[in-house]
Amino acid sequence: MIINNLKLIREKKKISQSELAALLEVSRQTINGIEKNKYNPSLQLALKIAYYLNTPLEDIFQWQ
């Protein structure tokens, strides 16, 4: 199972779901689904999230 800290990191950086979704060219619902662990992002999307949040990938997504 993958645990993610996306919501915590996104809120710490004061970025809304809508703003992050626009940067990543995905829907706000996609961001919401990832934050709620409804599904895991593709590797490409995970890397883009880490890039736009300027945060190491392993700080956002962790195996458990």
Rank of each mutant, 00 (worst) to 15 (best):
K12E: 13
T55H: 08
Q29P: 06
L45G: 02
R28S: 13
Q17Y: 04
L24E: 00
L20G: 00
F61W: 05
A46R: 06
A21L: 02
G33I: 08
K14M: 13
W63V: 05
L57Q: 03
F61N: 01
N4I: 03
E19Q: 14
A50L: 02
V26H: 03
N37F: 07
K48H: 06
I60V: 08
P41V: 12
F61K: 00
A22L: 13
N5V: 04
P41Y: 03
L8Q: 15
I60Q: 00
R28N: 12
E35N: 01
L43F: 13
Y39W: 09
I3K: 13
Q17W: 03
Y52N: 06
L24T: 14
I60K: 00
Y52M: 10
E25N: 14
K38H: 15
L20Y: 01
L6E: 01
Y39R: 10
I34R: 01
Q62R: 11
N5R: 11
I34H: 01
G33D: 15
P41M: 05
Q29W: 14
F61T: 01
Q64A: 14
N37S: 11
I60Y: 01
V26D: 02
E25I: 07
D59I: 08
K12C: 09
P41A: 04
S18M: 13
K14I: 05
S42P: 11
E35Y: 02
P41L: 07
N40F: 12
S16M: 06
L57I: 12
Q44T: 14
Y52T: 11
I9W: 07
R28G: 08
F61Y: 03
E25Y: 10
Q62F: 07
L43D: 05
D59R: 09
V26I: 13
A46H: 01
L6K: 00
R10W: 02
Q64V: 11
Y51R: 12
I2Q: 08
T55Q: 07
V26Y: 03
L43S: 06
S16L: 07
W63G: 04
A46M: 10
V26M: 05
I9Q: 06
F61M: 03
K38T: 14
K36M: 15
K38N: 12
Y39C: 09
L43I: 12
K7L: 08
L57A: 04
P41C: 06
L24V: 15
E35R: 01
P56V: 05
L53E: 00
A22K: 12
Y51L: 11
D59M: 13
N40M: 14
N40A: 15
N37K: 09
L23W: 15
E19W: 07
G33Q: 14
L45Y: 03
M1E: 05
T55W: 05
K13V: 09
L57N: 02
E35S: 01
A46E: 02
I2T: 12
P56G: 05
P56L: 04
I3W: 08
A22E: 14
A50M: 04
L47R: 13
T30I: 13
L53R: 00
P56Q: 07
I31A: 02
S42E: 06
N40K: 11
I60R: 00
Q17E: 06
S16D: 06
L57D: 02
Q44R: 11
F61S: 00
L43E: 07
Y52P: 00
I34A: 02
G33Y: 13
K48W: 06
Q17G: 05
I34C: 01
Q17L: 12
Q29M: 11
I49C: 05
Q29Y: 12
K13P: 01
S27R: 09
I9G: 02
A46K: 07
A46T: 04
L57F: 06
R10Y: 02
I49E: 00
Y39T: 11
S42F: 04
N4Q: 04
Q62W: 06
E19R: 14
L6N: 00
L24Y: 00
Q17N: 04
I9E: 05
R10D: 01
R10Q: 01
I31G: 00
T55A: 08
K38Y: 13
Q29D: 15
N54D: 13
Q62P: 07
A22I: 11
Y51G: 08
E19T: 12
K14H: 15
K48Y: 05
L20A: 02
Y39N: 08
S16V: 04
K13I: 08
I49A: 05
R10I: 03
Q62V: 14
P56M: 05
K36C: 09
L43H: 11
S42L: 04
I3E: 07
T30V: 15
I31R: 01
L23T: 07
N40T: 14
T30C: 12
A46V: 05
L53A: 02
I60W: 02
L47T: 11
E11W: 08
L20R: 00
I15K: 06
V26S: 04
K12D: 10
K12Q: 14
L8T: 15
L43G: 06
R28Q: 15
K14F: 10
E58P: 10
N5T: 04
K13F: 08
S42Q: 05
T30E: 09
L6R: 00
R10T: 02
Q64E: 15
T30A: 08
E25P: 06
K36D: 14
D59Y: 10
L47N: 11
N4C: 05
V26N: 02
L20M: 07
L47S: 10
I49L: 07
S42H: 07
Y51C: 08
F61P: 00
E19N: 10
A21T: 03
T30H: 09
L8N: 12
E19H: 13
K14P: 04
Q44G: 13
K14D: 12
N54R: 11
